[in-house]
Nucleic acid binder design. Structure first.
Length: 308
DNA sequence: CTCGATCCCTGGACGC
DNA sequence: TGCGTCCAGGGATCGA
């Protein structure tokens, strides 16, 4: 569930709380979500967390092997091929945050990084849909290259090219991390509603106007969500243990059956491109031939236990 | 090329 | 109350 705004929020928190710290030791427990566990055990101890960035839905803990603790050494990350980083994807339920070492381990604590100030950076993830990987040099560069443009940085031209570059439906395009990195189900639905575009529209069927609008609304929504520290549905909390507030601003996500804030029609729920999708059937006109393909009549599970 | 289906995993919600 | 079942989510993968 953590998407771009949530990951950005966590990354900023960690940048403030653990950047500059050195990793003293690593303890791995469950490792089935780690690319190469032994590489983590081998490479991480002794490395300094130079800074924490967001990359799509990943957090990138940039690492350096400078020996001293001088803060000014932090500024210079190797810009050559020597870069190394710990990639962390929070999946659905991942949480990466510093803890006091004496604090008892929470259930599902799979990784512990002991830091040089006595604290522990702990990764907790009940469902283990997350991913963790130590990568460096060309391997790191190649991994990052798999992903598309950052939705906050992408130009209108590139956005248009990417989003219309496939016959896939717009919902699928928005969620495809090789097209755009960082957009997930919530912000896809929210931005499509705001831009009045039906999720089942084919990418190439979008007009230039559609695409320009969609980019602008997506960016506005993402920025607003970052400002509010993300959406806390289910149990998302950031690196300080704080919940986000953006879920209170959702216009369609999790609002099926409720009234559209724009026109009053009932928000519909359906499956588009294999994912649950929320939209207004009046504001967001269905494409021709979108004969309600597979209506899921049955009751859905909890769409989030947001405390509204 | 794009699609749906399936798996991964746990816990929370729901039905009985 | 307790147990079984369903389902969310992102991403990989496989076959149609």
């Amino acid at each position: 569930m953590p998407e771009l705004p949530e990951v950005e929020t966590v990354a900023r928190g960690l940048q403030g709380s653990v950047a500059g710290r050195r990793i003293v030791s690593v303890i791995l427990r469950k490792v089935d979500f780690i690319d190469d566990p032994s590489a983590m055990e081998r490479e991480l101890p002794g490395k300094r967390i130079a800074r924490v960035e967001r990359f799509g839905k990943f957090m990138l803990l940039r690492l350096t092997k400078d020996a001293d603790g001088n803060a000014h050494a932090m500024g210079s990350i190797a810009l050559n091929g020597n870069s190394e980083a710990l990639l962390v994807h929070l999946g659905m339920t991942g949480n990466l945050a510093p803890h006091h070492a004496e604090q008892p381990l929470a259930k599902h604590t799979h990784v512990t990084f002991a830091l040089d100030d006595g604290r522990e950076l702990r990764y907790i993830d009940p469902r283990r849909f997350g991913r963790m990987a130590y990568l460096s040099g060309k391997t790191l560069a190649a991994e990052l290259q798999r992903f598309g443009a950052d939705p906050l940085l992408v130009t209108p031209e590139e956005f248009a090219t990417r989003i219309r570059g496939s016959k896939a439906r717009i919902k699928a395009q928005l969620l495809d991390q090789s097209v755009l990195r960082g957009v997930g189900n919530i912000y896809a639905d929210e931005s499509l509603w705001k831009a009045k575009i039906h999720p089942a529209r084919a990418g190439p069927s979008l007009t230039l106007n559609d695409v320009v609008r969609l980019r602008k609304e997506l960016q506005k929504i993402l920025l607003k969500a970052i400002e509010m520290r993300g959406s806390s549905i289910s149990d998302f909390v950031d690196a300080e243990g704080l919940a986000g507030d953006y879920q209170q601003h959702h216009k369609v996500y999790g609002r099926d059956g409720k009234k559209c804030f724009r026109c009053g029609a009932k928000i519909k729920w359906t499956v588009v491109a294999g994912r649950s999708s929320h939209f207004c059937p009046v504001c967001q006109r269905a494409p021709r031939g979108n004969a309600s393909r597979r209506k899921k009549t049955k009751r859905r599970g909890p769409v989030g236990t947001s405390k509204r």
